[in-house]
Design a protein around this nucleic acid. Sequence first.
DNA 1: TGAATAGTGTCTATAAGACAATATCCC
DNA 2: GGGATATTGTCTTATAGACACTATTCA
Lengths: 253, 253
Amino acid sequence: MARRPRRARRDDEARFLASYDASRFERPSVAVDVALLSAAEGALWTVLLRRSEHPHRGRYALPGGFVGIREPLDVAAARVLARKSRAEGVFLEQLYTFGDPGRDPRTRVISVAYVGLVNRARLLAASAGTDELIHARLDVPWEGETGGPVEARSSDGTTLALAFDHADILGMAVKRIRGKLDYAPIGFQLLPARFTLFELQQVHETILARPLNKDSFRRRMLASGQLEATGESQRDVDHRPAELYRFTRRSAI
Amino acid sequence: MARRPRRARRDDEARFLASYDASRFERPSVAVDVALLSAAEGALWTVLLRRSEHPHRGRYALPGGFVGIREPLDVAAARVLARKSRAEGVFLEQLYTFGDPGRDPRTRVISVAYVGLVNRARLLAASAGTDELIHARLDVPWEGETGGPVEARSSDGTTLALAFDHADILGMAVKRIRGKLDYAPIGFQLLPARFTLFELQQVHETILARPLNKDSFRRRMLASGQLEATGESQRDVDHRPAELYRFTRRSAI
DNA sequence: TGAATAGTGTCTATAAGACAATATCCC
DNA sequence: GGGATATTGTCTTATAGACACTATTCA
């Protein structure tokens, strides 16, 4: 197929690249937004930032920012999360890319959304010390994996107006973890290192927004091989203390 | 909360947007790539284009192209697919966004990948009349939903060198449809309007790359409520002809 | 001892896998 | 009729849901 030797082809390509004009086409901006989720009190929670600048000043947005010209997408997501909150080392998974031309009034901004799961203590720590960082409770107005936007409320119940299409991003995040819960070790990421089977069940019920059968949930989890009894039990509960388990392998989302 | 009347805030935001300088940051290029898949002869197939220009001249690439500055991502995906092949009206689903800084030697190119499923006749029609368009058979070197790059071969078995990270994009496409097969009506998109249960089973086996139990496959499909008997049967087969079914609702991927 | 939840054992219903028996086409 | 695959029926096994019963802590 190749008529010319390999070396000649390389030089040819190098010349092409040197003369390539990268500014010929108008380019969009590319950003990342991170939906950091946790489960508590029967609901999913996330962290939001009150926007102090235009556009959407006063509305609440996910931690996000523009991608550096030489920065990988997942590195950008970890960076904006660490800088805007105090959450470091969170496992992030790419969620979906939102590119509607009108989603940002400034200019064309295409946003690659990421989702991360943390336990309640880490979510609270993430918002510690910063004023604009808000701890928001999600209201999911659809069942199963229908999908669609969700609403955010502060802990006192007032609705938080979300900036841009962040209600859609959060909705996609909820849909994603609902879908993955059946076959991926998701619940563990939302719990501390040691937890009871009932706490795990509550997390699953919160994500799915429906009650689960206790007996078969226990059997399924114990049969999955992902749980290990610690030998320890709960303390200071006014009933028979439950055994504490740990997750055997901290794998992917 | 708002000290100023709503009208004043709007004017304020309008002034901000008018003065916003969109060129302050260096921006990446954004492209779309489309993995158009079909199933035949026990394997998955796709269409590839032989690159006549640098970079990666002579290698094979998915149909793709840059996103217009005011063009939605899914519109761009449908456009490049229609222009580079003859496939129109294909249902496309966003797959994953590939943004490694070194994936394109020209400049930073972030690519939003899409996947589409068509039956064999439409895949063949997609490549009719064009010389560069190649019909490639995929070799998946991993099992289940492990993930990773796949290899492409032409129908005579020669390996086709893939351009950019398109082996990863195709791998992600295979992983995605394997994962969705259990709960989404995927098989139907890969078949003509009328098909036998055995043909549907063969498509499932091709996607999953493992044999399925015939009896329980039939029961599961018939119980799913997604199939409707047409009353017609196969013709010109040298055995008892199977009944032809149709899919009841052409829904999402 | 009573309240409350943890944990175990057993029965039943449902779905999957295995396999035999019968049906229907072409030659 | 013989070859080949389609389709139906039945048996076995695994899993999920229901529910009763026992266990263990604190007040």
